[in-house]
């Protein structure tokens, strides 16, 4: 399955990439996606995860075609 992964703000700088498509059969959860794209870099404690524009925790299951995003706490307004 193919999953689109996006990174924003300080997370983009932390991982030195803004977006990547991954092809995988073994990825089950948002946390698995992180392990695949971040390698040995740990997920910062305050990381926010989103699946298809909705916040989700790292145990949330992913499916083919999902858009996953990782970013720091929001600071707009």
């Amino acid at each position: 399955m193919t999953i689109n992964v996006k990174f924003f703000a300080s997370m983009r700088e932390y991982l030195d990439q803004s977006e990547v498509d991954i092809d995988t059969d073994g990825t089950q959860t948002v946390g698995d996606v992180w392990l695949q794209v971040a390698g040995d870099k740990p997920m910062p404690d305050n990381t926010v995860c989103a699946v298809n524009h909705t916040q989700a925790n790292s145990s949330y299951p992913v499916k083919d075609g999902d858009e996953i995003a990782f970013f720091p706490p929001v600071t707009g307004g």
Binding site: S10, F71, G76, G77
Partner: peptide, 14 residues
């Protein structure tokens, strides 16, 4: 609306 925006809408300031 303003408080919800500050805590839920994905914006980031640098």
């Amino acid at each position: 609306l303003m408080e919800a925006l500050k805590s839920r809408a994905p914006f980031w300031k640098k």
